[in-house]
Amino acid sequence: MYESLLNFPGGLLAEFERLQQELQQEFANPGRPGSIRALASGAFPALNVGSSPSAIEIYAFAPGLDASKLDVQIDHGLLSISGERESALPQDNGTLSTYANERFAGPFKRTVSLPGDADPEKVQAHYRNGVLHITVARQESAQPKRIDIQ
């Protein structure tokens, strides 16, 4: 009964649990790489960046998008991902109640600066399960090479 009065899906206790989890996620993840540019938490889409000897891997967690409407550009060593996510709010015919509206809606743009040896000519992007995975190859001349001793 109280759930419906307070508009918390799952009740007040679940709401506290959610707050606690959010705090934990903010502060209690030592050991993994943190933010180099202090970004407001909850920016959309969330980005993970990885590095391997042959490429730079960028993962954008952008669920529910039309891949054809995603715009990925590289300009002067900056990779930008932009697009727009439509609101999921159904049409209100007078009986609609909204209990939670946490999912991002609206236009977005995120930028990653690429290292100097990134090759803007060799970029691949795949969108799968709501994750945009961009692979930017490193220039071949910059890749580690074994030198034969004669």
């Binding site: 989890q21 209690a28 952008a62 939670a100 946490e102 999912r103």
Partner: peptide, 27 residues
């Protein structure tokens, strides 16, 4: 205990509840 909390939308109309959950990367 250490799990991601997915963002949700919860809407209700006269027929039922619509729950949308963002879980990118989950097959």
């Amino acid at each position: 205990l250490q799990t991601l909390l997915p963002a949700v939308d919860v809407f209700e109309d006269k027929d039922g509840i619509l729950l949308l959950v963002d879980m990118p990367g989950v097959p």
